[in-house]
Design a protein around this nucleic acid. Sequence first.
DNA 1: TTTAGCACTCATGTTTGCAGAGTGCTAAGA
DNA 2: TCTTAGCACTCTGCAAACATGAGTGCTAAA
Lengths: 347, 347
Amino acid sequence: MTELTERQKFILALVVHEYARTAAPVGSNYLVNQYHLEMSSATIRNELAFLTEQGYLRQPHTSAGRVPTEEGYRYFVSRLLQDTTLPEAVRHTISHQFYQTSQDMAEWMRLAASVLAHQSRAVSLVTAPHMRQMRFKHLELIATRGRQVLMVLVLYGGEVRQRMLTLAEAVSQEQLSGSAHRLNVELADKDLNSLAALRATYQGLDCDVLEWVMEELKGASSSAAGEVYLDGMTNLLSEPEFSGSEDARRPLRLLEERSSLQDLLDSVVLTNTSNSAGVQVLIGGEGNWDELRQCSVLLTRFGAPGLATGTLGVLGPMRLPYGRAISTMRFLSSLLSDLVSETMVDE
Amino acid sequence: MTELTERQKFILALVVHEYARTAAPVGSNYLVNQYHLEMSSATIRNELAFLTEQGYLRQPHTSAGRVPTEEGYRYFVSRLLQDTTLPEAVRHTISHQFYQTSQDMAEWMRLAASVLAHQSRAVSLVTAPHMRQMRFKHLELIATRGRQVLMVLVLYGGEVRQRMLTLAEAVSQEQLSGSAHRLNVELADKDLNSLAALRATYQGLDCDVLEWVMEELKGASSSAAGEVYLDGMTNLLSEPEFSGSEDARRPLRLLEERSSLQDLLDSVVLTNTSNSAGVQVLIGGEGNWDELRQCSVLLTRFGAPGLATGTLGVLGPMRLPYGRAISTMRFLSSLLSDLVSETMVDE
DNA sequence: TTTAGCACTCATGTTTGCAGAGTGCTAAGA
DNA sequence: TCTTAGCACTCTGCAAACATGAGTGCTAAA
């Protein structure tokens, strides 16, 4: 595969742009007129023919314009997409919105999803950051009716988990508070392994509660925990590639299946794909995702690397506005990372 | 408007059923063959003509079959829909699923949404029950970095709210615990009004925290609080009424706008519409919802009436499987009511 | 009151033809 | 060697013309 000339790169970029905008195959004459190019359509035709031969473009049929292939998009993303930054005004507006909402993680995630969906004109996926290694911070046990007890568990990082427990026998609030107090003193700052080591130390109520704490900790540290914030579904519906057959809507079905969605989000970093400075780009499912054969997915992480990270994602047709989507993701990622680290419970 | 004969009711019901199944105008011959009726198609035609004249049916065009009108659906729901109950086997399966999941409200809501979406083949909407009158139960203050403090507020009813506070100046964990302890003792069981009355009693840190507690209580009691669990969006996409023009997808857009969605759910009980034993039926937006002109919405509440209630909803095309959807809602409502009251924090 | 028969209507599907967009190729010009 | 004007060719999209058939309303007889 020979290196492309500057002009060929330029034309490839134009085709990608134009196709993203119009969703219609782009022809040589059209390009010349639209961009007032300094060359004739015949020249463009020659270059288009070359790019087609190289596998970056294809023709839906003999006398149609060109459409980028998967390879074309990959080339575009990895080599032609210059590092665009969001305009200052946009950046300002976005961060303003974030600082205006209450300091609530769920609210931030919703806002991030909304902004990302708007900017990318596709579906956005956001998961709240969560700690890689969960550590116990504080426990609260609250008696309710009969043998039911509400357990509120605060973890380092500010995550709060609640759960209803059913005890073997009714226990008074005093006993519960006592148990909680003992455990709070002795479990503080411990991680799952350390807790497991301590298990033998306890008996009776304390032991049961410790079991539940560990269970909850385990649940919290599994990546499937936590909600996925979705926005912009309707963006996809207006796109022609999703209004066709039943088959065309498989990506949308994927979004409704929590488990598949989680798998997809988990594939960040694992898969090593076209990487555009921190943002991973999966084009056409990359062989692993049959449902996404027609789609592109952008993924990136935010938060404190290695400590507590969340995910930002975009799912849309292959003719995504990559530039804008990626720069928005980068910006949101750093913005959220700041917000999160500011409000994170100290070590 | 004259009373319909039994046969006319029967035929109207058949048309509603058949149209719900096939989404195609139903004709006289088709009905006779499909249901092996003991009369000729001409007889059916006469009845169809009558029902059309009465406004219960209409013809898309001269030589097409009949389609129910809004009035037709209303008549069907309010007078022809016999009280169907979900088959025992289905009921068993569903409740089994509920008792298998962890006793976690969010998990239950998700499951309810999933079940309801499946059964109704439409979009389901579920909101967690929340107390009408919020009452303070327990408060926890946890120091984090600098002047940031995590406040965990437990309310009667088992609702837990968390929020990050920014204090005027850094305060030690001891001071925070002291403040929390004082407030816990004195605020226990108080509602928003009682708290407001106590405000003057406090000063310094305690006073600030009380302010925040009140703010949070206020937020919690507004109906906009809490998430809306959605499921089954893709069900709608396969329906022909939503695959047409951009306009046909307005109901789907509605689902992405939190505020409109909330308004819709809030309209339970307020609007007095075709009411099928506890389940409200809004057909064609009932004049208030322009976006829903082509849709039907079913709404019902569950939980402890007057104390803590959540909402179950279904949104779909007018040709909803009303029988199944409504009986599923009734069943889920009573199931969830039981679950909720079992695990609710005592009075 | 029911129903067979019939004329009528109108959406749907198919064929046909045409205009237009876009191509590749060739040969002339820079 | 690269560019470009010119041209023949291909294929889609669209519209008109036409046949098909589903479904109706009406009438008249059972």
